[in-house]
Design a protein around this nucleic acid. Sequence first.
DNA 1: TGCAAGTATAGACCATGCTCTTATGTTGTG
DNA 2: CACAACATAAGAGCATGGTCTATACTTGCA
Lengths: 120, 120
Amino acid sequence: MLIHELSKRTGITIHTIRFYEKSGLIQGKRDAHVKSNNYFHYDEDTVEKLALIRDAKSIGFTLREIGQLMDAWFTNQLSIPEKIAVLDEKLESIDEKIKQLMEMKATISEFKKRVETESC
Amino acid sequence: MLIHELSKRTGITIHTIRFYEKSGLIQGKRDAHVKSNNYFHYDEDTVEKLALIRDAKSIGFTLREIGQLMDAWFTNQLSIPEKIAVLDEKLESIDEKIKQLMEMKATISEFKKRVETESC
DNA sequence: TGCAAGTATAGACCATGCTCTTATGTTGTG
DNA sequence: CACAACATAAGAGCATGGTCTATACTTGCA
């Protein structure tokens, strides 16, 4: 599919998709048979990648980290133990984030209680 | 205390503290009696605020959101129901983040399993 | 064939959150 | 009183993650 369709299917703007491509997160392929243009073609994996980027970004991963994750996910540049190491690292950092969120939740809840009693 | 001590006590650089002050997150007070300088003086609340900024930032709150939180926390610009509303909103957004983190954890764990079996 | 819609590249511009430099004035200790 | 250490303000510069504009070429349909 071309960039327009990719954009429609993922809800990510063409501009942002191009930005991600320039950043090395996704790669379209040009059709060697077609010489009249140099349009990029995208596959289903790219749709999945963009969904992953969207989700991972929303939980605070940087594009750099997401890139590492996707290398473990979609490419064969890494050996299996290397892939597992990357995934374990991300799992750990997620646990750490959850822990910090729990702490902040406790802090805010505690303060909320204080505000409530203050009103009596 | 002056900015140098505030910096030492919080581990946040003087530059960054000044940036937060310019952004409206903290406010030093000038001593009206002293006319030879216009140094800012900071209180204990400011130390707590900077700790809160550090923690809240690390879990993905923006400075704008942290500012709202601190208005509910430290000032009396908001009524008690308004304060509670702000706190509830932040608690909800924390729950949402935790939920998303759990989902991403499941996704990555699932993929890890696939990578592991692939190696057999 | 003309024209709208799509595509590419290059680069300007923006918000957030710093980080540092320059310039200048103040304070405190030997 | 010299001088280091501290303070101020103003503003430049930077990394990240976009967002948009300009320019120019290609494609597909009436």
